[in-house]
Design a binder for these strands. Sequence first.
DNA 1: CCCGTTATGTTATAAAGTAACAATTGTTAT
DNA 2: ATAACAATTGTTACTTTATAACATAACGGG
Lengths: 159, 159
Amino acid sequence: MSADSSLTFDPRQALEHAASLCERRGTRLTELRKRVLEIIWNSPTPLGAYAILDVLRDDGRQGAPPTVYRALDFLLEQGLIHRLASLNVFTGCRRPDSFHGGQFLICRDCGQVDELTNPTVEELLRAEAACRRFEVLSQMVEVLGRCPDCQRGAKARDR
Amino acid sequence: MSADSSLTFDPRQALEHAASLCERRGTRLTELRKRVLEIIWNSPTPLGAYAILDVLRDDGRQGAPPTVYRALDFLLEQGLIHRLASLNVFTGCRRPDSFHGGQFLICRDCGQVDELTNPTVEELLRAEAACRRFEVLSQMVEVLGRCPDCQRGAKARDR
DNA sequence: CCCGTTATGTTATAAAGTAACAATTGTTAT
DNA sequence: ATAACAATTGTTACTTTATAACATAACGGG
């Protein structure tokens, strides 16, 4: 029952956290950027840029792709979201305080994502890079598979 | 000077290896598929689908995007190539015998790629997945950074 | 050789991302 | 306050990446 403040799962909490982080850093979490972050956090599964754009338009706001991509770029720079390259989607970061490479379990069937934070993996990769004199800028780990729910679902259908 | 048969670096060797693998498996490495694999292996850096298509057209062969994507799908299924999701490019697999998730060091500046094969990383991720009852289908690790050459280049330019 | 299967050709279109410039808003210095 | 500058957002147009759908051709076992 730990209230680990370094892990965020609740949209509202994530937004507050993001706001205070940006304030501390002197960067501007504008209305648009905040709204995009909110849209991402409100979604049960990661969203693509155009899905986010659709929600913005439902808001009544005008917008085109660059509107979204610029907001996403900002949020990525601030480490508030991650991009899942294998799916071209974006998901809220649960540990926005410390910059880190993303590690994800991605369900092929339902699209839900679980963010891992295994420091050993990160260190091993850093070590591999170091012994090749390779300078690491970012890491990303994406494990594709099936979540427990979807395994059960598939088994049920098999009967 | 080891002749480690499990590691392929030479295009010709890779093609022969691929051919014998497919024969053993009863899958068909057709002319087109073989040519696409050759194009990928001949390139010093990973290629995008449309770059491959350009080479095919230079060959005089007719072709459209599906031509390439279908060949790539086959090669991916056979584990003969990997896809680098962060760059939308494809690179030859150096260990096509054993199916495995890709682990790559990708140079941001020159685009060159080094394939890692760290079993501990793979095991750690499998363990993380297992304790969450997550069934792993594939893994991908992409470390973005700068290769030694490009670090030197940048430093030289800085002077 | 016939027939079902697999592979390739072809056209069209969807989806993802960016370039370039205009308009607006925020910030700073006077 | 307000001019001047910087940062953000709006807008149009376009590029790159990928797939759907259907036609044609090649292959492989009876």
